[in-house]
């Protein structure tokens, strides 16, 4: 490592007042225009930073940030709720259609199928921030493109059903 490289490595800490030049370093700096220019640059950058606008009151800033995070989490939980209801609905539809074809099989009860995939939203309430975040991150990790029967927004779609199947579903819903 050259003397210039060694000096270059030291400039940030000296500019920031964390260290001082040794006599040898001072002598090098006085006689080396390259190192002098680097020193002047870092001093200028330090002055630029000092001219940055005065920061907002951190308490108010923290309150705003945390409110936004809470709003964001709430809206994602809302999406999660719609997603789980969607899963239940889709499962119900699929099961209803399937039972239409396979009458008499108790395992295909749409209510039972829906119950296995629905997550009751109140159960999310007592979760800690970290648990909620990891659950929400997992929800966002749902692979794209979505499986057949799902729109890009993750909502169930009836688009996969033909006209007869739709009639059966509607019949189920309308009693």
């Amino acid at each position: 490592m050259t003397a210039c490289e060694r000096l270059s490595d030291r400039i940030p800490e000296v500019v920031r007042g964390r260290s001082r030049w040794t006599p040898e370093e001072s002598a090098h700096l006085a006689g080396c225009p390259n190192c002098r220019a680097e020193w002047d640059l870092l001093v200028a950058v330090d002055r630029v930073a000092a001219r940055a606008p005065a920061p907002r009151d951190p308490s108010a800033l923290a309150a705003t940030v945390l409110r936004r995070v809470a709003d964001h989490r709430r809206s994602r939980l809302g999406s999660l709720g719609r997603w789980t209801v969607g899963v239940a609905a889709a499962a119900g539809i699929a099961a209803a259609v399937w039972t239409g074809v396979n009458r008499g099989n108790p395992a295909s009860d749409p209510v039972a199928v829906a119950a296995t995939v629905d997550i009751a939203l109140p159960e999310l309430e007592p979760m800690e921030t970290a648990e909620l975040d990891s659950l929400l991150e997992a929800m966002e990790a749902i692979p794209s493109p979505a499986p057949a029967g799902w729109s890009a927004l993750g909502e169930p779609t009836l688009g996969d059903l033909d006209a007869d199947e739709l009639e059966q579903v509607l019949g189920t819903w309308e009693g």
Binding site: A49, R51, P55, A62, L66, T129
Partner: peptide
């Protein structure tokens, strides 16, 4: 769940972030 910790993190780092962004 401690929101006060977040406030302390903001207090510690927000001014430096402002200097970084401005620079």
């Amino acid at each position: 769940g401690d929101q006060g910790s977040a406030a302390e993190l903001v207090r510690r780092h927000s001014a430096a972030m402002g200097r970084f962004l401005y620079s």
